[in-house]
Each structure stands twice: as structure tokens, then as C-alpha cells.
Computed example of a mutant assay.
Amino acid sequence: MNTTLQPAQTLIDAESAWSQVMARDPQATIFYAVLTTGVFCRPACTSRRPLRENVRFFISPSDAQAAGFRPCLRCKPQAARSNALERVRKHLEANLDRRVPLDELGRIAGTSPFTVQRMFKQAMGASPSQYQRALRAGSLRSELKSGASVTDAIYNAGFNSSSRAYEADPLGMTPAKFAAGGRGEHIGYATAASPFGWMIVGATDRGLCWLALAESEAAAEQTLRDEFPAAEVHPDASLVEMVGAALDSVREGRDLSQTLTSKGALDLRGTVFQLRVWQALRDIPRGQTRSYSQLAADLGDANATRAVARACATNRVAILVPCHRVVGASGSLTGYRWGVERKRQLLDSERG
């Protein structure tokens, strides 16, 4: 196992943490691991106290597991963290009409504001404030698509004023324009031939909203028009750099997000669950794959395999959110929004 001091461990006061272990403090938020057993526990664990020199401290269960330790079967440290996360999540969902401060979430989780922020983002793939924004955005999309007026949709989604909804910019365009299929929105795009077919990127003045693959240039352009049928779309030569960056990310492993976000905001529009899936996809190392069931388990819900598959199928930004890295349980490539053969080519290129 890896016993090298991890960066997160430097944030822990070792003497204070050891005192919590000795006192079996039930309010302690750190975790300790024992080198001689390879197990990590909560400080309140009733197991025999280890020798101090054999103990290492961690902020989260995932940090301890990354260092090679396994969870204690007696105190179940992962379950303790899951319960705290569930309390925080429910509180955020019950208070969508206001910003919930971190110190309030810390009291609910029984931990510090810093720890609850880090714990939540690690598990959910988004900070508490981002999670709330995503919830409101998802509700706003549903309201608008169901035919509600813009004003009713904004308030029903949890925004306490129309100005807050427009400032939050949860759709990548104004609510009224989203409801009208992008009517009045100007979307620039660029296309280019690639080894994986024709690639297209689309962006508003707020940021990237589309990255797709198709058989021909005309088909690539049509994908954008189908997504935003009422928008005004037009070629934009300045976006060609994005196409090149997307190709480089596959061929050479360059960080595409750095190039894209330097041109404007990245707009990953989806439900909270979709955002979590898309974040998990971005965490899969280049050239590797995960099954839909593995991804569901990683997200804490082994029964969500179909929901994970749907989130992959609705991904709007190919390559940047690498849904091509998800395969069937048998290792088969299964479906891919832009074609199974293209999926094979992308994986072969990453592995090559």
C-alpha cells in the first residue's frame, strides 16, 4: 500500500486527531488508518486502539482508500460519511430558494465548513452551491418544456426573482430563448474533418454548448440545428481552435477543458444526476473504460445502471465528457450516440 504522506493529510492536526482517536470522539470528522492491519476507521470505532506510530490520518474515506487502506467492517466509515452527505443533500434540496452558507451545512454534517465543502464535491462532483444551481436549472428546463410561462417557471424552479434566474445563467441562454428552442440566440459553429468523422463545435457568447461527431459536414451542422431549431446559427472561424484542441485531446492526451474554458464558459446543461455522471466520466483515465454498472456503483447507486446509460446517451459534448469510455458489463462497446465504430476508433486512438 501507499504510505506516502498525501497532500490532504497536511491539513490535519495530527495531535488533535490522535486525541480524538484516544477519546473515541463520535463528533470527529477525520479518519485514521492502521499500517499493520491495512484498515481505516472512524475515531469512534470500538476496535482495539493501535500504536501511534502505526497510524495515518485522512480527511475522507476516498483518501484512505486511494492510499491502499480498506474500510473497517465494524465501524463502517464509508456509511458514516454517506449519512452526513445525505443530510446535507436533503437540506440543500429543501432550500432551493436561498443560498445555504457552508457553516450551516457544516453544522448539519457535524463537521467544519471546509470539510463539508470538500466532502460534498468529492462525492457529488459539484460544490454545494453548484449542486443547488443545477437543481434549479433542471427544474427550470422541465417547467419551460412543459409549457409553463417564463415567469411561472422561474419561480417554480426556486429562483426568488427573475433577475436571479438570468444572472445564474443555468441554461447557457436566457430562459425565454431556451423555451423557444433558442429563438433569437446566435450560435457560432465550426466544423472540420477528423479521423473520427466530421466534428462540430457550437458556442453562444456565454460559452460552449455543443460538440458532436457526424458522417458528413452537412450532418454535423444538422445536429446543431436539431438541438437549437429556432436559433440563428452561423460559421465562426474563431472556433476552429476548439476543433483542433478536441482532436489533440484524443491523440495526445492534452487537457481539452483548459483550451475550451479559455475561450468562454463550459455549459454542461443537465439534471443533477446527469452532471454527476458526466463528472464521473471525466474522471476515467484516458484509454481506460468502465462499465455502466461500475459507474453506477461509483456514484453510490448500484441500481442506477440504466440511468447512467441514459445520461451517457444525452451527453452534448463529445470527447470533453468522454462517454466513449463506458462499455457493457462484458466489455462490449454497446451503443454510442455518435456510432459504435467511432467509439472504437476513439478508444484505439487513446490507447495507441
Rank of each mutant, 00 (worst) to 15 (best):
231 A>H: 06
101 P>E: 03
153 A>F: 03
269 R>T: 11
293 S>P: 02
29 T>I: 02
53 E>F: 11
151 T>H: 13
149 S>V: 07
33 A>H: 01
218 A>D: 14
193 A>T: 01
297 A>H: 06
339 G>H: 07
89 R>I: 09
248 D>F: 08
118 R>W: 12
31 F>R: 11
31 F>T: 06
275 L>C: 04
167 E>A: 12
64 A>Y: 07
16 S>G: 10
303 N>I: 05
184 G>I: 05
95 N>E: 06
248 D>H: 14
215 E>T: 12
306 R>H: 11
301 D>W: 10
187 I>Q: 00
101 P>D: 07
237 A>K: 15
312 C>K: 09
219 A>C: 10
233 V>D: 07
337 R>D: 02
177 K>P: 02
180 A>Q: 14
10 T>H: 14
326 V>D: 04
168 A>S: 13
133 R>P: 02
220 A>F: 01
186 H>Y: 13
142 S>T: 14
207 G>E: 00
233 V>T: 15
113 P>D: 01
36 T>N: 15
129 S>D: 14
276 R>C: 08
26 P>G: 11
1 M>P: 12
137 A>S: 08
287 G>K: 07
31 F>C: 06
278 W>R: 10
189 Y>P: 08
228 F>K: 06
332 S>F: 10
124 M>W: 05
201 V>R: 03
341 E>M: 11
193 A>Q: 09
309 A>T: 05
167 E>D: 12
114 F>A: 12
258 Q>H: 11
122 Q>K: 10
212 A>F: 10
183 R>N: 09
329 A>V: 12
228 F>W: 12
146 S>Q: 14
223 T>A: 07
220 A>N: 04
120 F>C: 01
218 A>N: 14
153 A>Y: 02
314 T>G: 13
191 T>G: 06
134 A>G: 00
323 C>Y: 09
319 I>K: 03
193 A>V: 02
69 F>T: 03
202 G>C: 00
60 S>T: 12
110 G>V: 05
47 S>L: 14
252 E>Q: 13
216 S>L: 13
218 A>R: 11
303 N>S: 14
263 K>V: 03
348 D>M: 10
289 T>W: 12
112 S>I: 09
4 T>W: 13
24 R>M: 06
247 L>Y: 00
176 A>M: 11
94 A>W: 03
87 R>G: 01
227 E>I: 12
272 V>H: 00
